[in-house]
Computed example of a mutant assay.
Amino acid sequence: MSTHTQLKVLTATDIRGSKKQRRLTMLTAYDYPTASIADAAEMDMLLVGDSLAMVVLGHDDTLSVTMDEMIHHCRAVARGTQRALVVGDMPFMSYETGVEDAMRNAARMFREGGVRAVKLEGGLSVTPQIKALTQAGIPVVGHIGLTPQRVAALGGFKVQGRSAEAARLLLEDAKALEEAGCFALVLEAIPAPVARHITESISIPTIGIGAGADCDGQVLVFHDLLGLYDKFTPRFVKRYAELRQEAVKAIGQYRDEVIQGTFPQKEHSFTMPQEELEMWEKSIKDRND
């Protein structure tokens, strides 16, 4: 792993310009330590995903996270990032209601959260918001396919675009988002051939998650990749570590050592100068006499 000796802070322009030049890497991050770790691993983009509702806050879906909570986590991620482009997820109902709400909330994510791009879910229906944001100088990542904020309307976490008509509509959405000004597009849980055709049909990079190997880049959830989230594992996730198991083991060992009296030991404790100790002990003795 290189050490950022010549630090290049990535921008939305850099990401867009990578199309057909190199593959892109994106990972979610939710706080200072996850951002610092992912940035040190040289991720191109860190997504402060609304998935924090599930993997950090313990909700059953992404709908419950608020704008204030997103901004709180965005600030922490921005502080932990030196190189990657930090993208903030616009939470449920922070932009669907119209351009004015989208502008106000995206501006908050920039000013208060420190992000340098935002992500919106949806296709044609959100193009007015995307046009307004990009015209105001706020870079936007699009997101189509399985859109978790619309999971109730989609009937659950299901693969999208499996019929010819559904695939056609996804392609239309992708082109509309490109035209509206998105600099990149997340494709989630769609058949690999559909993702490949979309990738080949638009000039902006596609970032796949459960969309096959032909996208211009890939994104995973930090807690899924490292085996920290235990409720379920999507089919498209590859676990590169099992840190939850290791953490439970380590904490259990700490518990046992405390109960057995083997922690802390001398090397974990502090001392005081011998003469001060003797003076203190004498003062206690004199007080008790």
Results as ranks from 00 to 15, higher is better:
1 M>L: 13
9 V>L: 14
11 T>E: 05
12 A>C: 04
14 D>M: 00
17 G>C: 07
18 S>N: 07
19 K>W: 02
19 K>F: 08
19 K>H: 03
20 K>I: 00
21 Q>H: 08
22 R>I: 11
23 R>K: 15
27 L>F: 05
37 I>T: 07
42 E>K: 09
43 M>T: 09
44 D>F: 04
44 D>M: 01
50 D>V: 06
50 D>I: 02
51 S>I: 05
52 L>N: 04
56 V>H: 06
58 G>S: 08
58 G>F: 10
66 T>A: 02
68 D>N: 08
68 D>I: 07
75 R>T: 14
77 V>I: 10
79 R>K: 15
79 R>W: 11
82 Q>G: 14
83 R>E: 09
84 A>C: 10
89 D>T: 08
90 M>Q: 03
103 M>K: 10
105 N>Q: 05
115 V>K: 01
119 K>T: 07
126 V>P: 02
132 A>T: 04
133 L>Q: 02
140 V>Y: 03
144 I>V: 11
147 T>M: 08
147 T>A: 06
150 R>Y: 15
151 V>Q: 09
153 A>V: 12
154 L>I: 06
162 R>F: 05
162 R>C: 13
164 A>L: 09
167 A>H: 01
172 E>H: 07
173 D>C: 07
173 D>V: 01
174 A>E: 03
176 A>K: 03
179 E>Y: 09
181 G>Y: 05
184 A>E: 07
185 L>T: 06
185 L>D: 06
190 I>G: 01
193 P>I: 04
197 H>N: 09
200 E>I: 00
200 E>G: 08
201 S>D: 05
202 I>N: 02
204 I>C: 08
205 P>N: 03
210 G>T: 08
213 A>N: 12
214 D>G: 06
216 D>K: 00
217 G>L: 01
219 V>N: 00
219 V>Y: 02
219 V>Q: 01
221 V>M: 03
223 H>V: 02
228 L>D: 03
228 L>T: 07
232 F>T: 10
233 T>H: 11
233 T>K: 14
238 K>I: 13
238 K>M: 12
241 A>D: 14
242 E>A: 07
243 L>N: 01
244 R>I: 07
245 Q>C: 10
252 G>Y: 12
255 R>F: 12
259 I>A: 15
259 I>Q: 13
260 Q>E: 15
261 G>E: 01
265 Q>K: 15
275 E>F: 11
276 E>I: 09
278 E>D: 13
280 W>Q: 05
281 E>G: 00
281 E>D: 10
286 D>N: 12
287 R>Q: 10
